[in-house]
Design a protein around this nucleic acid. Structure first.
Lengths: 213, 213
DNA sequence: CGGAATCCCATGCGATACTG
DNA sequence: CAGTATCGCATGGGATTCCG
């Protein structure tokens, strides 16, 4: 491996040597959600060639960012404590990139893990703290997420479950997150479809998850 | 560009599409210090092939991260406001990579701009606030920096000037920054050589600039 | 002399096929 | 399901040349 070398001695260069290769930070992003199997990673990164996934996993392991966790017959990959410290980097990147997102192209896909991290990026712990605990069941494209906010704590899990507000939304939900689209208008225009629960809870959702654009 | 497409629709993927190419974030790092000419960038990135520098500059400009600023005969490159918003990303990466820095290899170089950003990364505004204004003149390898701290404000400029403490240090200064090496021992062991000013000011420096390892 | 464009070669990546 | 093997191509590295 010995990631191609930039010939400089500083923290940023070092970081890029470790996680600057193509796909590496997307693997880290997904592992920030939780341990994953090889096949789960491959499914969450639809375009990654399997040989690249295999070599990235080896490289990231060699430099101490991830580790293999043999768990009852199958192997799980998980971040090491040091790898988990990339969370601020990944969230900062996500917040920055969010502002440059246009409309999705036809060949672009939404995954559960990327949406989970996006929600973490947009989560306003300070705002949530003063709101009642709330559970949202969101169907965001192919991703079904159960989002539970309790005080300043956020938990996002795959799948569905009991929720105060149950809604479906397409990619345009980013306009709700950015504040460009008011919750009432999001419902009126069909960007968000409320399946169950009071529409007003979408206001709470929008103030809990907000990222300026 | 766009050929290097990840096929996903989320903020992190978008960010990596814009600044994920090799060398791109190092160019951004140097431009965070200030506008630079082509030749200055090339000098600060000793290993970058000139064709790569030229294409990265074009790409970064095309996506709105940098802009060309014709300034009296010569062209300066500078970050756009949006590009400047990458500062948290770059600092977070630097802080993370700092912890994985070993000893410098023979082929590794220290540049003034990378040290400037490293100092910004390690700067503790909250600590500095309660300390008297101080100017340090530091010779860090080939980089001569004038570091002025005034309250919670930090200014790092190339070159030298009047300073309260004037010192020279090699790469092992990172052990001072990380707190592994006490200021007094840094002087005793020759990691830091004080040229002018009271040794005690190195304590102030070490508490002003600190990054856990 | 600053700011590239152009060559050539080495390597990393992507797509697909294949194997334990 | 979890990877390897292989191959063609795009990209990066480095030196050189060009242009204003």
């Amino acid at each position: 491996m010995a990631a191609r070398d930039y010939g400089q001695y500083d923290g940023i260069t070092r970081a890029l040597e470790l996680v600057g290769e193509r796909w590496a930070l997307l693997i880290v992003r997904d592992l920030l959600v939780g341990p994953r199997r090889y096949g789960e990673l491959a499914a969450g990164l639809p375009r990654i060639p399997s040989n690249i996934l295999a070599s990235r996993l080896k490289e990231l392991q060699a430099v101490g960012v991830i580790r293999r966790m043999p768990r009852s017959r199958v192997v799980l990959y998980e971040l090491t404590p040091y790898g988990r410290e990339l969370e601020p980097v990944v969230l900062a990147l996500g917040a920055w990139g969010f502002k440059a997102m246009g409309d999705p192209r036809d060949d672009q896909v939404v995954t559960a893990d990327s949406m989970t991290i996006a929600l973490r990026t947009a989560f306003r712990a300070d705002v949530a703290e003063s709101l009642p605990a709330t559970a949202y069941a969101a169907r965001l494209g192919p991703a079904e997420l159960l989002i539970r906010v309790d005080g300043s704590r956020l938990a996002v899990d795959r799948g569905t479950g009991p929720a105060d507000l149950d809604f479906t939304a397409g990619p345009d939900i980013r306009h709700l997150i950015s504040g460009e689209l008011a919750p009432a208008r999001a419902i009126a225009t069909g960007v968000v479809e409320v399946l169950r629960g009071p529409d007003e809870l979408l206001d709470r959702f929008a103030s809990t998850f907000h990222l300026a654009a």
